[in-house]
Amino acid sequence: MTDIGCQLYLISPLDVSGAFSEKLEQALSAGPVAAFQFRVKGIDQHEAAALAAPLQEICARHDVAFIVNDSISLAKRLKADGVHLGQGDGDARDAREQLGRDAQIGVTCHNSRHLAMEAAEAGADYVAFGAFFPTNTKEVEHIAELDTVQKWTLVTEIPCVAIGGITPDNAKPLIEAGADFLAVSGAVWNHPQGPAEAVKAFNALLA
């Protein structure tokens, strides 16, 4: 996840069983993607690891960082490229200690530059702001503002991820505000022409 302008960061749907691996292959074959976040809920770690294995393989083949959502222990078990922590999912320092210096550690910071500063001081590699738009992927508790991204990019070099209801139609202001990554889920996996077309549409915007 290097700094080369704004890049695409894909987040999995909650159901990654069945034919999802084919969708992921299509998406990653369609154009540059910086990272893929494995986000599943309500299953045990053994089942999660089994679901993750083929997806991790696809990401490795396409040189895409494989990031585990919420669970430092699952990230460690999978030898994932990193972990993304919500505000209640543990500390970046603990993640660094367990996953090593090369792990990519991200922290959800809602609309708060204060939380983002705390995460950066704890050693996070990137912070995530959102949700910027309504989304069906998860319940929105915090609405983020463009101003948060703009001010963050002026005061620090720690990359920021914009998340929440982002589509090719509404992403441009976030790119112009200085977001380093666009985190997208539904706009890719539920695209009427398939995930490959969605990735192409986003990358046309990011080019």
Rank of each mutant, 00 (worst) to 15 (best):
V33G: 01
N170C: 05
A116F: 01
D70G: 03
A183T: 08
Q104A: 00
E25H: 14
Q37K: 03
F133W: 10
A187E: 01
Q56N: 12
I4A: 09
S29K: 15
P195Q: 06
I163H: 05
G178A: 06
H142E: 13
Q37D: 07
T153E: 00
A53P: 08
Q193K: 14
I105G: 03
H114W: 11
V33F: 08
R113I: 11
E22F: 11
L182S: 03
A144L: 06
T135G: 04
S73H: 10
A116K: 02
E57Y: 13
F20Q: 04
N136C: 02
D70K: 12
G194I: 09
A53I: 08
H142F: 05
S21T: 12
I166C: 09
D94M: 10
R93T: 15
E118F: 06
A95Q: 12
F36H: 08
L115T: 04
L24F: 12
L206D: 05
E47W: 05
G31N: 03
G123Y: 06
L205H: 06
A75D: 08
G88A: 13
C109L: 10
H114R: 15
H46K: 15
N170K: 02
A207H: 07
D81F: 12
F129N: 01
A116V: 07
P134K: 02
F202Y: 10
